[in-house]
């Protein structure tokens, strides 16, 4: 570990510069990973309110990236920028670049296909007022899957992936609104997985749940990162520490610091990050 830091410092001094140094450090930690999504020089305004200020951040593939920071710092707004849910906000202006697999997410990819590839689970569980089966099948049906057997397969697999197949397999035709809050949220995850997204956005998806449901979803996220790139907003710093590989700290619309989660929590560079993770404000 110390060796790595020393080498990093050497590299910083040397000709290779920061990029090479970081790559060296990532390789050292076995975190060499391509970016699935990136934002570059992102500025976002709601009317005259400058919500995000020149944010640049990479989201590594098949890893969990946590966005932390006090309320109103813009982390949820950033998440909604990634699947263009901000389009619904009147007077929202987005400048800068958002990429998915190197493509411009706002210009090269049609919005509905972007939202299929970048799924989202909201803060409050929002199952549709229909059966459990129809909830999960909604996405595939939307994207043209009609075949009954194929739908059955997708529904089962998605519910299995969300670790709730055994709980609900006998009541797939019952209303989703009869499920508990934690089950509803896992159903929403299953519903998001059913369209086979590449990226999964979790917007404080456990904040409305009890500790046991939260633990289940955290465990689930650990499983999901094998196949998906996960980006989560959380108020719970322990959750970020438990679940994420990379953490970005936001304050008043600026990204203060981003890096491997361990580093952010143990040796943050910026004193504001240090204060926040130590619980001194926020």
């Amino acid at each position: 570990m110390l060796e790595a830091v020393a080498r990093t410092r050497d590299a910083l001094m040397g000709a290779g510069g920061v990029e090479e140094a970081l790559r060296g450090l990532r390789a050292e930690r076995g975190q060499e990973s391509a970016s699935k999504m990136s934002v570059i020089g992102l500025d976002l305004h709601y009317g005259s309110f400058h919500v995000l200020k020149d944010v640049s951040l990479d989201f590594p593939e098949r890893q969990v990236t946590a966005l932390i920071g006090p309320s109103g710092c813009g982390k949820s707004t950033l998440l909604k920028t990634l699947d263009r849910m901000n389009d619904l906000v009147p007077d929202c202006r987005v400048e800068g670049l958002v990429t998915l697999d190197g493509q411009n997410a706002y210009e090269d990819i049609p919005v509905n296909s972007l939202r299929r590839r970048v799924g989202m689970v909201f803060q409050q569980p929002n199952p549709f007022p229909m059966s459990i089966y129809d909830n999960v099948a909604f996405g595939p049906r939307t994207h043209g899957v009609q075949d009954r057997a194929q739908l059955d397969g997708i529904v089962e697999q998605s519910l299995r992936d969300a670790a709730m197949w055994d709980e609900v397999k006998d009541r797939l035709r019952k209303s989703a609104l009869g499920l508990s809050g934690g089950q509803q949220q896992r159903l929403c995850i299953a519903r998001a997985l059913a369209v086979k997204p590449e990226v999964l956005l979790l917007d404080e998806s456990t904040s409305a749940l009890d500790p046991i449901s939260t633990a289940k979803i955290e465990e689930l996220v650990g499983e999901l990162k094998r196949s998906y790139t996960v980006i989560m907003v959380t108020h719970n710093m322990l959750q970020a520490l438990r679940v994420s590989d990379k953490t970005a700290f936001f304050l008043l619309g600026e990204m203060v610091e981003a890096g491997p989660t361990e580093d952010i929590f143990t040796e943050p560079v910026d004193p504001r990050t240090a204060d926040y993770v130590a619980g001194r404000f926020g």
Partner: peptide, 10 residues
Amino acid sequence: YYEGALALGA
């Protein structure tokens, strides 16, 4: 509900 459907690409 509406936003949930949009977020699935509908």
